[in-house]
Design a protein around this nucleic acid. Structure first.
Lengths: 205, 205
DNA sequence: TTCTGACATATTTAGCGTAAAATGTCAGGA
DNA sequence: TCCTGACATTTTACGCTAAATATGTCAGAA
């Protein structure tokens, strides 16, 4: 490759182990939380990342690509943490509570406490299918947990008259409802734990 | 009162038994569902109601007042229907399912099927505190149901580790989450019934 | 190789005047 | 008494321009 060749953008969004991309995504998260996605300029992100604006384009195609990468990164991590929490030893209630807690950890706290963090909860349009795919992946994780727990005789889906997929879908969407009305992080956490208790009680005999 | 006195607007939003006001609110609902609240003009509502535009102002202060009246009317009816369904004879699961179904009956079906009906789900800003108060009233109804059912030994709130008010609040908000992502009415109903089954299973021993 | 300053392009913003539409009110008709 | 047509006012929608800002890309420095 010669230096006077045109820029060759990364074919996909940045890899999980690229430290530069990670730094940019962190800076972007901070910037978006502060100003909102629309009002954030590439220059703001570059400044927050401590690099020049031009360097951003060496790692991401454009602003939308940064947002996509950010969301994808979040969902990748959330999926792993979610599955880990659900799979950890313990009773069903704590597994569910820790599972949902894993979906709203420190990152989420920063988001809700930031000036325009709430706006980032509604970027489905700009972020494209990444969000829907991420949510679907989380629902699959939960569905798999339900199947495993039922196979182990720890819960019974008959109690709620549903198969694992339908149940997981409803549970995830109802959980998302708790994010509405711009609650404080603390209030949200209480409601989240409460909902997890309801889920646990519904599934256990 | 002399005819040349200035218009005397109704002090509060129209009464539940005023047939004229009811007709206007029905026309407004149809119009808002069709065009959305913002794009609907008073002339559209008047035409749908079969009266002159000026006559609207004999019953409502302005467009915002019509919206308020519409939402208030909905919540008044919903509260009554919700309480009736929860209080009807039957097992807990059917009471909860019929209760939540009462909150999304024919009116709600029309809404979701209308071109811009979804917009009406997000009019908190324009409708003011009416929506929040209506939601709170519904939560109180559910909380009272939970208390009564527990007193009768039909459910146990200990199972979900919550008092009636907290549980009702979370249950209502999680229910609202199901309205997200613009589902069809049929899909929404399935999820709603599924969530009611989860709630019932959680509360019964 | 990695990154930056600077450039050309594209987009956004704000202002401003006009036309069109919507609003709220009233005198007066049915 | 209830309602309407018409009026004055306010709000919105355009079209246009210039200025400002943001974007994406390079040649070349570090």
């Amino acid at each position: 490759m010669h230096s006077n060749d045109p820029i060759e953008h990364p074919p996909e969004t940045a890899q999980l182990d690229d430290p530069k991309a990670t730094a940019i995504l962190h800076a972007a998260f901070a910037t978006f939380s502060l100003y909102g996605y629309r009002r954030s300029a590439m220059a703001d992100i570059a400044k927050a990342a401590g690099i020049s604006r031009a360097a951003l384009y060496l790692h991401f195609k454009n602003k939308e690509d940064i947002l996509r990468g950010m969301m994808q990164r979040y969902y990748q991590g959330a999926e792993i943490d979610f599955a880990a929490a659900l799979g950890a030893p313990g009773v069903v209630m704590s597994q569910l509570q820790n599972g949902f807690a894993a979906l709203s950890g420190e990152t989420f706290r920063q988001l809700l406490n930031a000036p325009h963090g709430h706006e980032l909860l509604d970027v489905k349009a700009e972020a494209g299918p990444v969000v829907a795919e991420g949510e679907a992946a989380l629902a699959r994780v939960l569905a798999q947990y339900l199947r495993d727990a039922e196979a182990a005789g720890r819960i019974s889906l008959d109690l709620i008259g549903a198969d694992a997929d339908a149940a997981a879908g409803v549970m995830m969407q109802a959980y998302k409802g708790l994010k509405q009305d711009g609650p404080s992080y603390e209030v949200f956490c209480e409601k989240r734990d409460q909902l997890a208790r309801i889920y646990a009680a519904a599934l256990m005999r």
